[in-house]
Amino acid sequence: MGTEKGSKINQLLQTQPKGVVFLASWLSKNGYSSDLQKRYRKSNWLKSIGTGAMVRTGDVINYEGALFTLQKQASSSIHAGGKTALSLLGKSHYLQFSTKRITLFGGKGESLPVWFQNYDWGVEFNYYQSGFLPKNIGLTQIERKYFTLQISNTARALMECLYLVPKYQDLNECYELVEGLNNLRPKEVQKLLEACASVKVKRLFLFLADKAGHVWLKHIDFDQIDLGKGKRSIIKGGTYIPKYQITVNKELGLNDE
């Protein structure tokens, strides 16, 4: 390989963090042609992990490095959310949580790339596409050894859990989560509740926070939140909560009728 090509690959490897994936499309946009990419693979600088995706040869990667690539190179909104985000933030240590199953959220029509789906990351994924919350709010960053990763913050992660109720998420477990969240920032919660498009999520969030007796709930302006009209039966055969017009698990409805 010539000096020019050698310096070009060196520049790439020195400027990009370790433990991440390189997208062929991103490389092309940044001056690394398809022909040059082929030479890098042939020279064993890069290794393919699927169509349109490569890693440094010998590099150890996990799903977080792949998520970083989706967010930074593909400008994707796909992120760790729900219980996975709560676990990464250290909020769900008291729950039975398996790090072998990761919850991801993305926008409507935003699919996981084939290379991401087919590669063995050592974990299983539950991926949900939804627009019930805007993609640019309620996110935070966590530091990894070589890069930072964007995930849901505590309030958004909880709302993502509630979005999955009752089909994919147990409401009682959500209440256990809510009980431990006594220091949420009212302004952040208010912003998310006003932007949330799911009446179910908003009513459940407020009901559980109310039931848990959190002080921050007193600072929420209910008048600015669209809670919809009519009753919502979240759990069939459960207990009806008049204040929030929802039917929930019988045990959660105790003392709230």
Rank of each mutant, 00 (worst) to 15 (best):
E4N: 05
S7G: 01
N10C: 03
L12G: 08
L12N: 08
Q14R: 09
T15R: 10
Q16V: 05
K18L: 14
V20F: 00
N30A: 04
N30H: 15
N30W: 12
G31F: 10
Y32G: 07
S33W: 15
K38R: 13
K42C: 02
S43F: 06
W45N: 05
L46V: 04
L46G: 00
S48E: 13
G50A: 09
T51W: 03
R56Q: 14
R56W: 12
R56K: 13
T57D: 12
D59C: 07
D59S: 13
V60W: 04
I61Y: 08
N62F: 00
Y63H: 11
E64Q: 14
L67E: 07
F68D: 07
T69V: 08
T69S: 15
Q71H: 03
Q71R: 02
K72W: 06
K72E: 15
S76C: 08
I78F: 02
H79V: 05
G81L: 02
A85M: 04
S87R: 13
S87H: 14
L88I: 11
L89Q: 03
G90A: 08
K91D: 00
K91V: 00
Y94A: 14
Y94K: 15
S98Q: 04
K100T: 13
K100C: 03
R101E: 11
L104D: 05
F105Y: 15
K108T: 15
E110V: 09
E110P: 03
P113I: 13
V114S: 11
W115K: 06
W115Q: 03
Q117L: 11
Q117E: 13
N118P: 00
Y119V: 01
D120C: 06
G122S: 07
E124L: 12
Y127I: 00
Y127L: 09
Y128W: 04
Y128F: 14
Q129W: 04
S130T: 15
G131K: 01
G131P: 04
L133F: 03
L133Y: 01
I137L: 10
T140E: 10
Q141D: 12
I142H: 02
I142A: 05
I142S: 07
R144G: 10
R144P: 06
T148K: 12
L149H: 00
I151C: 08
E160I: 05
E160F: 12
L162E: 00
V165T: 11
K167H: 07
D170G: 06
D170N: 15
N172E: 09
V178S: 02
G180H: 10
L181S: 02
N183C: 03
N183S: 12
L184P: 03
L184G: 01
E188Q: 13
V189M: 09
V189D: 07
L192H: 01
E194Q: 13
A195Q: 08
A197M: 08
V199Q: 10
K200T: 08
V201W: 03
L204T: 02
F205Y: 15
L208P: 00
D210S: 12
V215K: 11
L217P: 00
L217H: 04
K218Y: 07
D221W: 08
Q224I: 04
Q224R: 14
Q224M: 10
I225P: 01
G228P: 02
K229Q: 10
R232C: 01
I234F: 07
K236H: 10
K236T: 06
K236S: 05
G237M: 07
G238H: 14
Y240R: 04
P242I: 11
K243F: 04
T247P: 01
N249Y: 15
K250G: 02
E251V: 15
L252Q: 05
G253F: 14
N255A: 09
D256H: 07
